[in-house]
C-alpha cells in the first residue's frame, strides 16, 4: 500500500479535531495555547499535502505553511505574555476561574 493524498488529509483532519477538542475542553490556558498550535500544524500538513499532490510544480502550499509557522510563533509569544499578566494578577491560569465578567 502506498501513501496517497487521502492519508495525509485524514491525518490532518484527526489532528485538527484533537486540537479543537483540547482547545475547547482543557482548563489550563497554556494547554489551550498548545492545542491551538496543534490545529495550526494540522493545517500545515493539509497545505503541504495539497501542494505536493495537486500542484506539484509550484510551491504555494509550502510557502503558505512557512508563513503560518511564523505567525503561530508570534501568536504564541503574545499569548504567553498575556497568560503571564493574568498569572501576576491572580496566581492562577485556570480558564474556568477567569470569570470577573460573566459570559
Amino acid at each position: 500500500m502506498s501513501l496517497g493524498l487521502e492519508h495525509y488529509l485524514v491525518l490532518s483532519a484527526v489532528l485538527f479535531s484533537i486540537g479543537l477538542y483540547g482547545a475547547l475542553a482543557k482548563r489550563n490556558a497554556v494547554i489551550i495555547l498548545m492545542c491551538i498550535e496543534l490545529m495550526l500544524v494540522a493545517v500545515n500538513i493539509t497545505l503541504i499535502a495539497f501542494s505536493r499532490y495537486i500542484v506539484p510544480a509550484e510551491l504555494t502550499g509550502q510557502i503558505f505553511a512557512i508563513f503560518v509557522i511564523v505567525v503561530a510563533a508570534a501568536e504564541a509569544a503574545v499569548g504567553l505574555a498575556i497568560i503571564l499578566a493574568i498569572y501576576r494578577n491572580r496566581q492562577d491560569i485556570d480558564v474556568t476561574k477567569i470569570n470577573l465578567m460573566k459570559w
Binding site: A29, I98, L100
Partner: peptide, 14 residues
C-alpha cells in the same frame, strides 16, 4: 483587562 485580552486571544486564535 487581562481577562478580556486572554478571552480575545484564545477565541481569536481558534
Amino acid at each position: 483587562s487581562t481577562e478580556a485580552s486572554l478571552k480575545y486571544l484564545l477565541l481569536g486564535a481558534i
